[in-house]
């Protein structure tokens, strides 16, 4: 059996395009998901009436349904619902790319919300009390005191969740979008070189996700250090270059 590596090399530009889309989607869903998730976690932590319950229901729902189903639901059902709302009564199609970005962000936000919420509960109560005793508003308390600490503590878990997100982006296949996996699949089927392309894709995912896991591990080890000296020193330590 021969392994036609040349075919993979030839397809590299196309594969890279797909990889770029995967990266783009991951980045948007991570940033959007973290922003929305942090906001939801804070609302829940503050026990804002009505809103906290609504968010709880939303998070439970999103974490109970497989992503593929959420993608389908958004792609097929939401246009119909929107159509009912408009006078024309016709279903409003949402492009697959728009669907993907929105759906992934909303889906991931539920997971990030739970991570941040656990972090908020894990932070020493004294931090909240110290902030309140100084007269800090809730907004300042969360923004300047609590969330920075939460992000430091939960960084390893957030990175893990983002790795999972990156792998999940392959699901846009069902929306006929071309991500890294989709690109490989298309060429593999066109050129009948399934083994070569799927192997390559697997190796690339393995490499990327391993680097992510390593980063997560570095963050975890960094927890032991309570004395970063400056931003640059902190960054160096984070990447394992400086010594305490």
């Amino acid at each position: 059996m021969s392994f036609d590596f040349a075919a993979v090399l030839n397809a590299t530009p196309y594969l890279l395009q797909g990889l770029l889309f995967s990266a783009e989607l991951t980045l948007v869903a991570m940033i959007g998901g973290m922003l929305l998730g942090t906001f939801m976690a804070i609302i829940r932590h503050m026990r804002v009436p009505v809103a906290a319950e609504a968010i709880r229901a939303y998070v439970t729902l999103m974490r109970s349904i497989p992503l593929i189903l959420v993608l389908f639901w958004f792609f097929f059902l939401v246009p119909l619902l929107l159509g009912h709302l408009t006078p024309a009564g016709r279903s409003i199609p949402l492009g697959p790319k728009f669907t993907a970005f929105i759906t992934f962000t909303l889906f991931e936000s539920a997971y990030y919300a739970e991570i941040v919420r656990a972090g908020l509960k894990a932070i020493d109560k004294g931090q909240y009390e110290g902030a309140k005793a100084l007269g800090l508003s809730s907004l300042t308390m969360y923004w300047s005191v609590v969330v920075p600490q939460v992000l430091r503590v939960t960084a390893p878990i957030i990175v893990s969740q983002t790795i999972i997100l990156f792998q999940d982006t392959a699901l846009v296949y069902v929306l006929s979008l071309t991500d890294f996996f989709g690109a490989a699949a298309k060429i593999a089927q066109r050129d009948s070189k399934l083994v070569e392309f799927y192997s390559t894709v697997a190796v690339v995912y393995l490499l990327i996700c391993s680097m992510g896991s390593e980063l997560s591990e570095r963050f975890r080890k960094k927890q032991g250090y309570r004395s970063p000296r400056g931003r640059f020193e902190r960054a160096k330590r984070m990447f394992g270059i400086a010594r305490p």
């Binding site: 020493d124 009390e129 902030a131 005793a133 600490q149």
Partner: peptide, 15 residues
């Protein structure tokens, strides 16, 4: 809270 300063047993400094 603006006018009352508080010192805690566990300091509660922001690390």
């Amino acid at each position: 809270r603006r006018e009352v300063g508080m010192v805690f047993q566990n300091f509660n400094l922001f690390p």
